[in-house]
Simulated assay, not measured.
Amino acid sequence: MSFAELLDHVGGMGRFQIIYAILLAIPVFMMASHNLLQNFTAATSEHHCHVHININNTPYTNLTGKLAAKDLLRVSVPIDSNQQPEKCHRFVTMQWQLLDSNAIVTNLTELETEPCADGWVYDKSIFTSTIITEVRESSAGNRLGKGY
């Protein structure tokens, strides 16, 4: 005896089976929207290491308050192959010579770098907040004792 024959034998598809199927379908429809939500809340924004400014023993001590953000980023974070700031590394010491247009820098890959230790800075022009930025900022804040 097949399932179709058994269903016909007990009375076919009745009101109970229809209500039961509808009630089971409601959570399935909710899960579809929940799965699509990840496309928006888990977006990864452009980011780079948090810049630490160590002005001790530098010839540009009087300029650090006057430099543009992109110049400070240039001397603290290496540039990747796409001419964008490196996402996971920063220079160990500020590379002030990179601001001098007349300076000759032979090989930028030989400059000493370190992993991001103080967290990241995110570009918030597209997404002001995502679960990725929230988790990373809170974990960096806990590690540094800052309570973001």
Rank of each mutant, 00 (worst) to 15 (best):
G11A: 02
G11C: 01
G11N: 06
G12C: 01
G12N: 05
G12H: 09
G12T: 04
G12Q: 02
G14D: 05
G14H: 03
F16T: 00
F16S: 12
Q17T: 06
I19R: 00
A21F: 10
A21N: 10
A21C: 10
A21M: 06
A21R: 02
A21H: 05
A21L: 08
I22L: 08
I22C: 04
I22N: 04
I22T: 10
I22A: 02
L23H: 05
L23K: 02
A25Y: 06
A25F: 13
A25G: 14
I26C: 02
I26P: 04
P27I: 11
P27F: 06
P27M: 11
P27W: 02
V28D: 00
V28R: 15
V28W: 11
V28T: 09
F29A: 10
F29S: 05
M30V: 01
M30H: 12
M31T: 03
A32R: 00
A32T: 03
A32G: 07
S33W: 00
H34L: 06
L36H: 07
L37N: 12
Q38N: 14
Q38C: 07
N39A: 05
N39V: 08
N39E: 11
N39T: 11
N39K: 11
A42C: 14
A42T: 15
A43N: 07
T44K: 15
T44H: 11
E46R: 14
H47L: 13
H48F: 14
H48C: 04
H48P: 08
C49N: 08
C49G: 08
C49K: 12
H50F: 07
V51C: 07
V51R: 02
V51N: 08
H52M: 14
H52I: 15
H52Q: 14
H52C: 14
I53E: 03
N54M: 06
I55E: 00
T58C: 07
T58M: 03
P59C: 06
P59N: 08
Y60L: 10
Y60D: 15
T61N: 01
N62M: 06
N62C: 01
N62H: 08
L63M: 09
T64F: 15
